[in-house]
């Protein structure tokens, strides 16, 4: 009971895939220009991560270690195909926004990384907890980044075709936040902020 809670929490804080481990960046920076797309991307990644972690963990004694990477990739690719076809069939506008990033979940380092580092060596329930923690940790950072970029970069937030939140009129949004360079620079500051947060207690002790 306690063990899987610990594993779950690690993904959210000390082992957060984006801000601490720095893996899975490509999708994050590209998708985070809109909150809506980021939400669906987060859900897609959580689904693929949990399912592939669970299946790999179930099969871990049957997978020979010499060919484990191709087997992992095929398992991951199958779940990504499920998500790809599901979004295409039921949420075509979202699919149009996310586009290539859904198929590219296959090569997202987070998923293969967790399969290799965690699911291949641990029991099923722990692997599911790890998938959930890592997936939610990824989604939180992704949606947070998207919120800053969309709210300050375009002055409003749109969800499923409706404007949810709006800046007061007369606000001139810095469009650079919505563009590629803005994503890099903002993410740099987010990483610095997280590092500052993590280092703070030791700073206090020293002072």
């Amino acid at each position: 009971m306690k063990e899987w809670l610990k594993v779950f929490r690690a993904g959210l804080s000390i082992d957060n895939p984006l801000t601490v481990l720095m893996i899975g960046l490509c999708a994050t920076l590209a998708v985070s220009s809109q909150v809506e797309g980021s939400l669906f991307m987060g859900i897609a990644v959580i689904f693929v991560l949990v399912m592939s972690n669970a299946l790999i963990s179930v099969l871990r004694k049957l997978i020979p270690s010499q060919v484990r990477i191709p087997i992992f990739i095929v398992i991951i690719a199958s779940f990504v195909t499920v998500v790809d076809l599901f979004l295409k069939a039921f949420f075509p506008p979202i699919y149009a926004v996310l586009g290539i990033w859904i198929p590219l979940i296959v090569v997202n380092c987070i998923i293969l990384g967790r399969a290799e580092a965690f699911a291949y060596h641990n029991r099923v329930w722990l692997s599911i907890a790890d998938g959930l923690g890592m997936g939610i940790g990824f989604s939180l950072v992704l949606v947070g980044l998207a919120f800053i970029r969309e709210f300050f970069g375009s002055g409003k937030i749109e969800l499923l075709g409706a404007t949810v939140l709006k800046m007061p009129t007369g606000y001139a949004p810095p469009t650079i936040l919505m563009m590629f360079p803005g994503a890099f620079i903002l993410f740099g500051f987010v990483v610095a902020f997280v590092r500052w947060l993590n280092e703070r207690p030791t700073n206090r002790k020293a002072a």
Partner: peptide
């Protein structure tokens, strides 16, 4: 000090990407 290493790399990449824009 807080920006040293990775954060600074991201900011540099942002400026480099600005050139490509």
């Amino acid at each position: 000090r807080v920006l040293k290493g990775n954060p600074m790399s991201f900011i540099t990449a942002g400026l480099l990407s600005l050139a490509y824009v």
